[in-house]
Structure formats: structure tokens, C-alpha cells
Design a protein around this nucleic acid. Sequence first.
DNA 1: CACAAAATCACAAAAATTGTGTTGATCATG
DNA 2: CATGATCAACACAATTTTTGTGATTTTGTG
Lengths: 253, 253
Amino acid sequence: MKRDERQQAIMDLLVEQGSVDLEDLAQRFVVSKMTIHRDLDELEQAGVLRKIRGGATTEAGTQFESDFRFRERRSGAAKDRMTDEALKLVEPGMTVMVNDGSTAAVLGRRLVEKRPLTVITNNAAIMDALKDESGITLIALGGTYSAKFNAYFGVVTEDALERLRADIAFISVPAVAGMEAFHMDDEVVRAKRAMQASARQSCLLINHTRFERTALHKLCDLTDYTAIITDDTPPQAALDAMATGGVDLIVAN
Amino acid sequence: MKRDERQQAIMDLLVEQGSVDLEDLAQRFVVSKMTIHRDLDELEQAGVLRKIRGGATTEAGTQFESDFRFRERRSGAAKDRMTDEALKLVEPGMTVMVNDGSTAAVLGRRLVEKRPLTVITNNAAIMDALKDESGITLIALGGTYSAKFNAYFGVVTEDALERLRADIAFISVPAVAGMEAFHMDDEVVRAKRAMQASARQSCLLINHTRFERTALHKLCDLTDYTAIITDDTPPQAALDAMATGGVDLIVAN
DNA sequence: CACAAAATCACAAAAATTGTGTTGATCATG
DNA sequence: CATGATCAACACAATTTTTGTGATTTTGTG
């Protein structure tokens, strides 16, 4: 494996996990820590990450710095566990919708395991991944491209969804509080709603750290979902609220 | 520029032009011909091209082997000349539609020269190219992905177009005979028609070797275009037909 | 403040990429 | 079909890039 490939792989890990561990990377790629240091320096120069003691994180990482290694190391595996559960809801032959977001992207890529399938998405990462897969009919939702979310949104997206139907929609959100799901961007909210409206069932994918948080816009009630999958046990308060509301939570671990 | 980037660039040129010239590549990348030889050898090993005397072609190239250099060398430049002309029709602030096809992809990439722009396309190559360009509002047309054309087609595409309007649409076709334009695929024809219907003006881009040919489906009459751009003087018969029909042809050379 | 872990630095070793000169193959042409 | 010319292949050397090691400095922690 060459330098460039390694750096690309580091970036991939970074978008997936939010952070990487230096020692871990050295082992994984079978190179010295010095080499990893140099890789991270260059990537930092390029502005794609921020070096911190013991590794590196994506820019935003203001908080969790000390314990990130243990918190985030598991996050890649967590997404895999969540997608394991999600995939159980998919049978060959189905039509599946997948929304924006990196967790959704992970799921999207793994949909090949269930082919033949029809996959409908506005997630650019999924389009790239499934474009040339045989056995996958890829229906892209058009729309205005948003670099922030690496996906397409807007009237075009919503209109297209209005005319399509799917067996199941996989939705992910950054915040859930009580019995409600939230998102900070209203365009994104509209796209997710349109997806849910066009799918026979909806399944929510939510990281356990995102419970008991809100964001500007309410997306919908949790009762709208036929399944809710999380990667780890959420806070007790959240559990209580959901139990009271009669919502069934699948904890993947 | 490093080895990998160069090889990637060679592949890009290859998909765009169908063939590449060894000497030309050596000059372009400022390396020795030996280096290019080695690059081509590796790419051939990888199965992405076929080395031939003086350069390389994509697998298919059964015929034009001896004279490809002159035929195709100009073809890259020809597309550039055509896009030069096409770009003259674009002003900053406009909304521009671009269809599928490699010529269209070349034009799409160059649209950044006229930003700010709104670009509407079903061409996957253009989406990739313009995704992260500031000053370009990228509106992707959704649809079912076609690996053959590297673009999206179908009802979703057509419906989306029905609700959008553009100042100008750039259309390319593989065959023109008499006063009519043709294409072999009916899905593609429908998408092109929908684009033309949604644009105030339509501009046809056509390689001069594609005159006096037909394909299964008729797309439309040449009179439907406000401008027709070609890369070189077409056969006399074609010129006559267009002159009689009152169509204005722009020859870019 | 001291200690341990981690980051940085400087230099050497190793690996890769590249250019050149030479030899062998292929082409166009008279 | 012979021949000069052009192009491809090969081998070797030079160069550049990448990597590892140990010494040294910095940083975080108790």
C-alpha cells in the first residue's frame, strides 16, 4: 500500500469514525508511527483534520478530546452493528429508500448484500457506491446539491419522491428528544418527510449519543417509525419516554 | 504531479477521447516518453486500455488503428473548439441544462468559466465535476442510472424536467441525417426532448463525422434548435440539406 | 515539579520513479 | 522487398520520494 492510498484510507476512517488513533493506524498499515505522524501532518496542512495528542479528529471536534479514542473507536463498529440490524429488514427484490448522512451511506454501500434491489436515494455517496453494481437498480433523486450534506435536496427531490413508492425507507437524524426526531435544516427535513410519506415502512437509525438532544426543526414523532435502531443503550430518560409512548427500540450490540 | 495522478489523468482522457497519443501525453505531463510507455503498460496490464503504436485506445477500437492519431488527436481539440463556441452562448447568471454524453461532459466541466450559474443535468460526470464548485448551483436530475451512458433517465428525470425551466439546453446526438436528429435509445430520446421542452433555447452539439447517419429513434427536427455547433465542415449533402431547411450551422475551427 | 508518553527533528536507508542510450521491431515507400 | 526512419523495449544509472531509527524536545499528568 502506497502513501496516497494510506492517506485516503485515513480520511475514510476519519469520516466514518470522526477520529483516528495514531498507534492504531501504525499497526493497521504496518508502518512506523513516524510515518503516520507525517501523514497526519500533511492531511492537517490540507485542512481535512486536526491533530491531537494520540491521533487526529475531524475539524469540529471541540469537546471529547481526551477520551475520544475509546468513545469513537467503537463508532465504526457501531455503525456496522446498526446496519446489520437494518439489513435484516431488507429482502431481495424490495425497493429501498435511503436518506442523506454518513450512517445511511454505510448502509447504502452494504445493500449489495441483499441484491437484487431497487435503491432510491438522494445521498451522493450512495450513488457513487452503487452506480456500477449489477443487480442494483439505482434511482437517484435529483435536486439541488448540498456540499454540506453531500446529498440533493429541494423541490425536485420532493416532487420525485411524491411519485415513487418504496417498501421501506431508512432515515437517520442527528437529534431525538422525548418522542420526537429533529434536524437543523429545513430542506433536509422536507426530504426526509417526503421519503417517509412514500414508503410503506420507515426505519430510524440513531446513534445513542444523539438522544435527549433537539435541533431547530421537528421532523416527526417516533411513532411514525415501524422500527428504530440504535447502536447502544440510550439514557434512561429516553428509554422511559419511548416505553411510555409505546415505541419499540432495537439496540444493536 | 505524481505517477498515480498521471495515470488517472490518462484514463480520464481515454474515456473522454477514446484514445490517447503517446507523444502528446509526454508533452502534456512533461515527462519522457519512456515514462508514458510504462504508464500505458501498467494500465494495459490492469485491463483498462490497449496499447497500439503511437499511443493507446479503449478496448473496443477494432478499426481506426493506423490513422487514429490524426483522427482522434483532433477530437479532443475538436470538443474544446465546440465548447468554446457553446460557451459563447452562456452568460453568468443563466440557468443551463446539459444532457448526457462525453462532449456534453466536457462542456459541463468548463461551465465554471461562466459562473455564477445554475446547472441542470442528468449527466453523472458533470455532477461529479461541479459538485464542489462554488458559484455553481448544481441541480441534478434524478432518474434510473444507466451505466452505458453514465447518466440518469426515466420518468423521474422527465417529471423533474417538466417542472424546471432553463435559459438554454445543450444537447448532443450521435446521428444527424437531413434535417433530423437521431438517437438509438428511446429513454435517452425522451430525456433530451424533455430538456428541449423546458429550455427557452436549445443548442445542438454534433461531431462532423456524425452527419448523414441515422439511428433507431428520431429525436426532433433541426429547426427546433436555435444553434447547431459542429467541430468541422460536414459533408456537402448535409450542408445542402441544412441550407435548404434554413438552419444556421456554426462550424468551430 | 518530576516523570512518562508523545511529538519533533535530523539523518541514513530503502524503495520508487524516472531518464538515457542502445537494441530490436515495425512501418511507409520507392 | 529492401531500406531509412520511427517507435517500442530493455537495462542501467541517477534521482526523487518515502520510510525508519534514535536522539531531543515538548506536553500532559499526578
